[in-house]
């Protein structure tokens, strides 16, 4: 559900601060959203973060760990089926 985007310019100066002093149930939706940090809005969190560069050694270490974990998991799964019989 998209609702019209309130803007700060159509709110009286200081209204958000004044609104914050009232209990939440006494406030309007456009005042309530002022309590969200800007990067909390869905529109902001939907934007992907930048890719972090992984060095060759870090990538190698991660793959080694991944292969090792998969191998050990297969051993556990094999043992599980072995014990069934």
């Amino acid at each position: 559900m998209n609702v019209p985007a309130p803007t700060v310019e159509n709110t009286a100066p200081g209204a958000a601060v004044a609104g914050a002093a009232r209990a939440p149930h006494e406030r309007f939706d456009d005042e309530l959203v002022m309590d969200l940090e800007r990067d909390q809005f869905v529109a902001e969190t939907s934007r992907p973060v930048a890719r972090a560069p992984l060095g060759a050694r870090a990538t190698l270490a991660l793959w080694a760990l991944r292969v090792f974990v998969v191998l050990v998991s297969l051993m556990v799964i094999y043992t599980f089926f072995y014990q069934l019989h």
Binding site: T7, E9, P24, D29, V33, M34, D35, R38, Q40, V42
Partner: peptide
């Protein structure tokens, strides 16, 4: 940056709101 600080910076449009934003904003309030 806390959204309340936006009041000091006129003409900053908030992003389009979703029902998720509204529900979360009530908790944050």
């Amino acid at each position: 940056m806390a959204a309340t600080e936006l009041a000091a910076a006129p003409s900053i449009a908030l992003p389009p709101l979703t029902e998720e934003d509204l529900a979360r904003s009530q908790d944050r309030s």
